[in-house]
Nucleic acid binder design. Structure first.
Length: 528
DNA sequence: CGGCAATAAC
DNA sequence: CGTAT
DNA sequence: GCCG
């Protein structure tokens, strides 16, 4: 594709719609620089729509274009930049002339009626309902009234009886969630993820997985506050202990779930999927951008830029030679990526830790340690290893001694980053961190990401808590903490009144200080 | 309508 | 600033 | 996008 970077526009050729502003095309991925304020947009930026002019008059095409923009969607100048293509054509051969063969499979090809239906209902209608090339059923494209009424009248709703109390969870079917009896305390309707137990897999996990698709798309497109809203909403649903299948309208009573997500929840349980997630799942642009973020040091912005500059493969990204400010070059990152994609089973987390702790013991005996991260939350496998070590005060630069020893033994293949040694006697507490790539012996030469954290025992509890996650749990414990007059980080807890660091030798001491019931690590799985 | 975690490295 | 934890 |  020709890299049309800046938004382009043209003025209407025929002057019979004078009130309309010129149409604006946007072929790039990502939220517009000046996000147009739609109070409640029907189409999000995940719908990038191209209108085939063929068989439409200029005027019709322009009207449709304005409708797309009016509904909050993005208009593209080429078919390949879109994920939805509107056309009045019906003959496959004629359509094929406009669509690159590579694109044909992934694009939704819809009739203009789709857009009108979207406008009429104010909902993102499944584009497959208006597919111009037949899928399983050929009759859909014409009878939009029928599909509409069918969707709205079907399915009984039996959600009036059940209430949001969470105590008498009598109806716990054979769900895949972990033993509910282990739940440390009952669910409560709170906006703080750190106050509600969240299992590894919840009873509404299929819904959570669907919302996660939208969340990931918001992250990749840079819609950051929408991203956060989805993250928190799915987190809230994840903690909800009862099935929403027969009571989808209960969803908007859960704190963190608002009008929009409640609508999606309803759609999921009445129609079996969320349309927006379906569109995103089929969007190759999103998949490509996501794959770029697998490279260390390339996040949503870098991945998006690469994509918008025409990159479609790792080789393309490598060709760009963007190694911006990362210890791991793109080529190195690419080289070890196959290894880093391999999950680390729990027993290997343990054996690597044992090896490292044995080495440490020869340097400074008597340190305590905890394997944190997903491992501690009970995940069967992880993609990195977080080891938090607690050492007696007065021991300085322990991490660096250990690090040297590991290097000498050839265990360290890459130093992603390591905190600068605190040479002088800094009076305040210092937590040392090393982000390494390690090649453990006896594991087939696989590269493994290992994070080492060295904390004085006075803040060991905060460090362990800070490295156990999950992300939403961490964020909310900080929010809660501030509301109680403290500031929390993995380096310790500070009382805001006098800026004094409070002793937090154990996790329990942190929870107690904050007036929070202790949350067992296995119940901190607040993320999808 | 303001706010949305905190921190370190690059 | 963007990325990572 | 949601909460207070």
């Amino acid at each position: 594709m020709s890299s049309s970077s800046a938004p382009r526009s043209f003025s209407p050729s025929t002057a019979d719609a004078p009130s309309l502003a010129p149409l604006t095309f946007q072929d790039r991925i990502g939220v517009p620089l000046h996000a147009t304020r739609h109070s409640s947009r029907v189409l999000s930026q995940s719908t990038r729509i191209h209108i085939l002019n063929d068989k439409l008059t200029d005027d019709q095409a322009r009207q449709l274009g304005h409708l797309v923009v009016h509904l909050g969607g993005q208009l593209t100048s080429t078919p390949s930049a879109a994920n939805i293509i509107i056309t009045a054509l019906t003959a496959p051969k004629r359509i094929a002339k406009h669509i690159h063969p590579d694109d044909a499979a992934s694009k939704f090809l819809v009739s203009p009626q789709w857009l009108h239906h979207v406008q009429r209902t104010g909902l993102l209608v499944d584009p497959d309902e208006y597919a111009v090339t037949r899928r399983s059923g050929t009759k859909r494209a014409l009878d939009d009234h029928q599909t509409e009424s069918a969707q709205h009248s079907k399915r009984p709703r039996l959600d009036s009886d059940t209430l949001l109390d969470g105590h008498n969870a009598t109806d716990t079917p054979s769900g895949p969630s972990q033993a509910d009896s282990e739940r440390p305390f009952p669910w409560q309707n709170t906006k703080f993820a750190c106050k509600r137990p969240s299992p590894l897999k919840c009873i509404n996990q299929a819904l959570v997985d669907e919302l996660e698709v939208i969340h990931a798309e918001r992250r990749l497109t840079g819609d950051s506050y929408s991203e956060m809203a989805y993250m928190r909403a799915l987190s809230a649903i994840k903690a909800y202990p009862r099935s929403l299948a027969n009571a989808p309208s209960q969803a908007d009573k859960i704190k963190g779930v608002g009008k929009k997500v409640a609508l999606l929840v309803h759609q999921f349980f009445t129609e079996g999927r969320i349309v927006e997630a379906k569109i995103i799942r089929r969007d190759p642009a999103i998949a490509t951008i996501k794959s770029f973020t697998e490279l260390y040091g390339i996040g949503p912005v870098g991945a998006r830029e690469a994509y918008n500059e025409g990159c479609r493969s790792f080789a393309d990204v490598l060709g760009k030679g963007r190694s911006l400010a990362t210890a791991l070059s793109v080529s190195e990152s690419l080289r070890i990526l196959p290894d880093l994609r391999r999950p680390i089973p729990r027993h290997e987390c343990e054996s690597i830790t044992e090896m490292i702790m044995t080495m440490l013991d020869a340097i400074l005996p008597g340190c305590v340690h905890t394997i944190c991260g997903g491992y501690r939350r009970g995940k069967a496998q992880s993609y990195d290893l977080d080891i938090v070590v607690g050492h007696p005060r007065a021991s300085r630069a322990v991490l660096h001694s250990l690090f040297d020893k590991m290097k000498r033994q050839g265990l360290v293949s890459h130093v992603v980053s390591i905190s600068t040694p605190q040479d002088d006697e800094a009076t305040d507490v210092h937590v040392d961190v090393a982000h390494l790539v390690v090649v453990p012996p006896n594991s087939g030469g696989l590269h493994r990401r290992v994070d080492l954290v060295f904390a004085p025992e006075t803040v060991y509890g905060a460090a362990v808590l800070g490295y156990t996650g999950s992300i939403v749990f961490e964020r909310d414990i900080r929010v809660w903490c501030r509301s109680r007059g403290y500031k929390f980080s993995f380096t310790g807890v500070t009382r805001l009144a006098d800026n004094v660091v409070v002793d937090t030798p154990t996790e329990e001491s942190v929870f107690e200080l904050f007036g929070l019931p202790f949350m067992p690590p296995r119940w901190r799985n607040c993320d999808a």
